[in-house]
Design a binder for these strands. Structure first.
Lengths: 231, 231
DNA sequence: AGCGCCAGAAAAATCGATATTAATCGGTGC
DNA sequence: GCACCGATTAATATCGATTTTTCTGGCGCT
């Protein structure tokens, strides 16, 4: 089951997936995008009407999300969206740097032309989505980053990276997603990463990637402390 | 919810935990200990009678286990115990070395006397359990290893380590648990680790720990190839 | 006035039954 | 004789109702 990975263009109409699957994706989106706030209680009955489905698929989807740290379960007391904190944010950033760095190096170490092309393609698609201002830019953005790592040959590592990516992006949504991209030339950063990766320059690519993350991280961290101070 | 962590001595009689919780723990034990073989189908109806509970708790527990890679879900086709493979085993070992190494170094870097005492205690309990030949030696063994890492101050990292520990120990059970311990002085290895950790010798402790894992890993890998060859 | 306690309401957890989907087996046409 | 198709069977996925459990607000007691 490839949960945790990006769903592609299948978001059409005749989605024949199971109710659990749909519920899982919807709930996850609600939490990651901040439509459901950290710590907010997730009442089964409420979700039942909101998502137009029975209690079983909802509970199942919530159980899935529990193991991914997006939802917390308190025995006999229901579910709530995972809380956020500065410590949590810092740890996610740190772990991402460690694990994605590792994955990227391995990916490049066993680079092939197929992978190279996949990366170029993902980068292009991301650029296109950004231009259109579509909401699924974030999906393409994740796809680009995951494609960079995809060649590492370590499925568990990839899964961890994907999970951490989602946990991190949630903070970006919570801070107001637009802000981040306006103040920096993220496109340039992506091009740098792409270029070094294609050039098989592991050290350079890793440095660019981590720089990319750390800059975003510092930006968000500032914003968080500013918000905390304002309260 | 502290799933993934060792349940203590609460395995008595009046277990008032929820059915989902109990089912989760039972199922997990069945899979980790190899009572349910890799790839084996997990039929709801069968489990319902075996675990004396309804379908809902079982599905929920299976969903939880899915996110932990102990169970695979095939949409519309039910659940099965996660398959095993040499590649999977190797990756688990490798990831454990990376992540536990990281965690141990941090744990030692911020060592306190409380932590030191906890580690000594866990080690002692493990020794006691080994002597009695109780089945819960494995629990104490995990407790010892997790206590070593517990001081790292990184909950997500810890959770990853715990998950990987379970995935790994499953292979040990599958290979026949007893074999491993008979051929080496594992007690000595544990003492070495303990000693260096208490002495705040991060490099030494890490080296011992990884050596401990790699030796076990090599042993199991040999066994796996031997078994494969015999078939 | 403060504290604990009890009843009623709300929510979670669980069960049993139904609808849906995949697997199986036997028959039919080529 | 073999491959394909359709009905039967088995199992999953989902729903609706019931049973526990927790939460809330008000009452009586000290």
């Amino acid at each position: 089951m490839d949960l945790g990975v990006i769903q592609v263009g299948s978001t059409g109409s005749g989605n024949a997936a199971s109710a659990t699957q749909r519920t899982y994706l919807s709930l996850r989106r609600l939490i990651v995008t901040g439509a459901v706030k950290p710590g907010e209680k997730l009442k089964i009955e409420g979700l039942r009407t909101r998502l137009q489905t029975g209690a079983s698929p909802i509970r199942e989807a919530l159980s899935l999300l529990t193991s991914e740290h997006l939802v917390e379960r308190i025995d006999q007391r229901g579910f709530r969206a995972a809380p956020t904190s500065r410590e949590n944010f810092d740890e996610i950033l740190e772990m991402r740097c460690e694990l994605e760095g590792m994955a990227l190096r391995r990916s490049i170490a066993s680079a092939t032309e197929d992978w190279e092309e996949a990366v170029v393609l993902a980068h292009h698609r991301m650029g296109r989505a950004a231009g259109k201002g579509t909401d699924n830019f974030e999906d393409e953005h994740k796809a680009f980053h995951m494609t960079l790592l995809a060649n590492c040959g370590a499925p568990i590592l990839l899964r961890f990276c994907s999970q951490l990516y989602d946990l991190n992006i949630r903070y970006r949504y919570l801070a107001g997603r637009a802000l981040d991209y306006q103040k920096r030339d993220v496109g340039q950063e992506h091009r740098e990463i792409l270029e070094r990766a294609v050039a098989r320059d592991a050290d350079g690519a890793e440095a660019e990637l981590l720089g990319h993350y750390r800059r975003t991280g510092a930006f968000l961290a500032d914003l968080m402390t500013a918000q905390t101070a304002a309260e």
